[in-house]
Amino acid sequence: MRNIWIVTKRELGAYFGTPLAYVFAVIFVALTGAFAFFIGNFFERGQADLQPFFNYHPWLYLLLVPAIAMRLWAEERKAGTIELLMTLPISTWEAIIGKFLAAWIFIGIALALTFPMWITVNVLGNPDNGVILASYFGSFLMAGAFLAIGSCVSALTKNQVIAFIVAATICFLLVMSGLELVLGFFRGWAPAFIVDAIASMSFLNHFELISRGVITLPSLFFYFSIIAFFLFANVVIVEQRKAA
């Protein structure tokens, strides 16, 4: 635990020691706001909730989370610091969880900085704050799942651009798997349970449930198992490819 926290602390320091943290936070807050007001018709809907705000989170994460995740391991490998890190008395999984947590906490901070949205909607009406809290929680979990995928992909390459594109693509497919666009393709010929299985892999469906205030075990299980699986794969990949 101690080692995990040491790695997390160093990583967080690295985020805030460079412009990365500030650029990311500003863009994240600006974009979530812009989407909610201009595309989500926050005012025109005349409802006191944050639905139009949260609806665009999956799509924003699609772009922004791989951008955070791409450097996690690709940069270590490129700079050769992975050799330093892996010869310190830290185990691989401690390093991976430490780095993952740092990025997740960082995204959490960016997410928390959108609190003016919450204030706004409370000033304008009487929203269900429980639902909003659940939505924040769901959004944070979804970001963690994207991040675990990005971290795992980042360990596969020294090239951050490749890490970004591959991670974004995988995340895109997982988001899309709940849309009629993808499901319709299978519905014509595949048995219903396969269509259901594909739909159940969808980030979007689980997120929609949570953002309506319904936190169900399957949804929690879904996000946590995605995180656990990709972090485990991450350990295997780092062990295998650290010197390549």
């Binding site: 602390k9 050769g80 610091t81 330093l84 010869t87």
Partner: peptide, 26 residues
């Protein structure tokens, strides 16, 4: 261990980098 090329986290100061190493070393 000093790896070839002496890799270090370039965005840290020498002192904060060594602080990190010292913490890892317990």
């Amino acid at each position: 261990y000093l790896p070839e090329g002496a890799p270090a986290y370039g965005d840290m100061t020498a002192r904060s980098f060594l602080n990190f190493i010292a913490e890892v070393r317990g």
